[in-house]
Amino acid sequence: MKSAVITFPGSNCDRDMHVALNKFGFKNQMVWHNDNELPKSDLVVLPGGFSYGDYLRCGSMASKSKIMQSVIKFAKSGGLVMGICNGFQILVESGLVPGVLLRNKYLEFICKNVFVKIDNKDNPYFKNLDKEVFEFHIAHNEGNYFCTNDQLKEIEDNNQVAIYYCNDNGKTEEKFNPNGSLKNIAGIFNKKKNVLGMMPHPERMIDKSLSGEDGSLFFKNLINNIK
């Protein structure tokens, strides 16, 4: 299985993602934002970081970069595109997933482990995962998911919410919401569910001795789903 991680100026989780993908069996290739063409890939990842210094709005400049034209084309043809953290911000700015990510409600940069609930499994990312509550890491200043009421209705009608913030028992109450996100939303799919944007970093949870291994479960499952 081949994957591609896009590096934008200011990306800083691109190498972590490269290590994670290779560890679980992908043959990953790094792609520079100024390239025109994507290499042949089964999965394209937009990594976390601070592309273009978060100028104007997070992800806004990166969403207009050269490679994004190919990424958008790839996504529209049904290819799997996953955006983590700043990658999620780039996805919303490019219009591949609905909504926006605003400044965190309490104006703090949040860097901690959180629990998230994944119960939406009718998609290539989470199909066959045999548990619902995962411990992932978040590190962001603009992760406060927002969309219009009309968009929210459409998202919920189409079952596009991918991930919710919750507690260790999977309860998705407001008090377990770290950043003020609408309805505790931590991740969103596009309509066809081939594009996934999420704030949590599964690539930071792939080593038993350094963190948890919930990210390992996610990546192992993902490559099996794609095969």
Partner: peptide
């Protein structure tokens, strides 16, 4: 196209 995000 760039300067504003018309969703918000």
């Amino acid at each position: 196209k760039l300067l504003a995000n018309l969703v918000i």
